[in-house]
Design a protein around this nucleic acid. Sequence first.
RNA 1: GCCCCGGUAGCUCAGUUGGAUAGAGCAACUGCCUUCUAAGCAGUAGGUCAUGGGUUCGAAUCCCGUCCGGGGUACCA
Length: 596
Amino acid sequence: MKIETLIHQATEAALKELYNFVADENQIQIQNTRKDQEGDITLVVFPFLRFSKKTAEETGNEIGEYIKQNVKTVKSFNVIKGFLNLDISNDYWLDNLISAYNNANYGIVLPDENPRSVMVEYSSPNTNKPLHLGHIRNNLLGYSISEILKANGKKVIKTNIVNDRGIHICKSMYAWQKWGMGKTPENSGMKGDHLVGEYYVEFDKHYKAEIAELQEQGFSKEEAESKAPSILAARELLLKWEANDEETVSRWKMMNEWVYKGFDLTYKKLGVDFDRIYYESETYLIGKEEVLRGVREKVFFQKEDSSVWADLTDDGLDQKILLRSDGTSVYITQDIGTAKMRYNDFAIDKMVYVVGNEQNYHFQILAVLLDKLGFGWGKDLYHFSYGMVELPSGKMKSREGTVVDADDLIDEMIQVARDMSVELGKLESLSKEVAEDTFRMIALGALKYFILKVDPRKNMMFDPTESIDFNGNTGPFIQYTFARIKSVLRKAEENNIIIDKNLKLNSLSAKEKDLLKRISLFPVVVKEAGDNYSPAVIANYCYDLVKEFNQFYHELSILSEPNTDQRNFRLMLSATVAEIAKRGMNLLGIEMPERM
RNA sequence: GCCCCGGUAGCUCAGUUGGAUAGAGCAACUGCCUUCUAAGCAGUAGGUCAUGGGUUCGAAUCCCGUCCGGGGUACCA
């Protein structure tokens, strides 16, 4: 049984016996002892003073004595201020190490016969432009949280909703048709999503120029915006698309295909994937039907101009438009359709939307609308809301070209990893293929860790010139420690030193004990990350773990330790640290190189 | 205007859900490679936890006010 549980129970019993007091759950606070104090586990005694009617010192001593008598693993204790610090026997930590070492799934909860099923939606791109840094955060969070939920025993279905229809793609289509001169990914060698994105920017350029010209002619800004020839042409294309115009639809399909091929390459590079992809062109009509049903059932209402609305003022929200006056659907209409389709397709217990925090209001409304439409699962939607990525120059805007392109960034980071490796004289003995694969792992490790280590809910800053780092609190630092341990383990193997599972040892240094304690925390951390939807919790744990390992590594020798029991223990400790670091980093979607 | 989120070292971020003397990395400075990988380790310096009150044994953490920043706010997604 876990030591915290034992101490908790013993404390309950002590309070009953000593002070005839029945404590409730959260009055008993057990935490890890601060590093600068003697002891391993700390019980906070302040809350008991009201009942013990004694000083903190006396109360701590009495409870400490009781626990020491009744819990064998507690060797001794000390009381400082209101904190009862307990010393746990080395055997406890060693047993924990052995079970961690032997259990290939240590820290991971395996799904039971009937696991909770969670669908995670992430990525969700528009098909008119390539992926940028903001999408990277989304994709990494979505992938990682999926892995973390799996590690907590859930069955996870990863899904992507592609926003493949609407005015934005019509803009790119129109611009390509007008100025593209038949340029294709094949004849230009350009990645499809970048090619289409180019015409999205091209559209905006012309559109802006037209607006300016119209304004010079005396039109107001609003008039100019709605009268510009480019936007009229794009609108016309949208109408044609909705009317199923053959030529428009086939061009739409062709250009979307280009984009999908491009996205696939980026997804592959990022190492993210999906079990099922939905397209809004396939779900928006379902949403529309649902909204019209809502009108019939008087859940929603129609205005004179025939636009459809939901009145949410009773829920403390505003009125929300669901269908435009021309009958076309809006964003939330599509999401209603998509949600319904998903619950039809899969038996899911919970739906998680990985979407930026600028859409908090949208998802609040979506849950209410689904509820009003009679879908019982509306309230089971969870919006995993994350903050924006900001650049030193401010917010990213696709149309204005102030974005950090995903492909460019990844390629650039791989180049930096390559340069640095050459500079440090590393990996020279490896084949070109293995070396290149390692550069890729390091570059992506740096990028993924940089983004995932920060609390997802917060906005974060990314400075392209300074954020690409491989030293300190970074992914490569953790990968490096892993490679270092692997190197030691290889050398052990070469010398026929095999790890003996029967641990014997006579002493335990402070650094070794720190590592044992840290190892025992891994399962708690995985659970916490799952409960709080926070890959950052895992990232920070991995850093602390390997940071402590490096101190241990520097202070004590492993292979040249003369005492074979001690050497055996240190090898097992190292192997376990490497394995946990790898398991943790894998939950972030980060691969670990054997050498670097 | 109204609603939501945030403000911790020069910079980027942690802070175990109210606990002990607030921690890392980067940048600066100082040491440590003939010894298991120096992408490392050790050290110096750097803080009115935006701010004013409140709650209590105890507040960066909870409550109220103020300031600053970001986002949303009925026919973009």
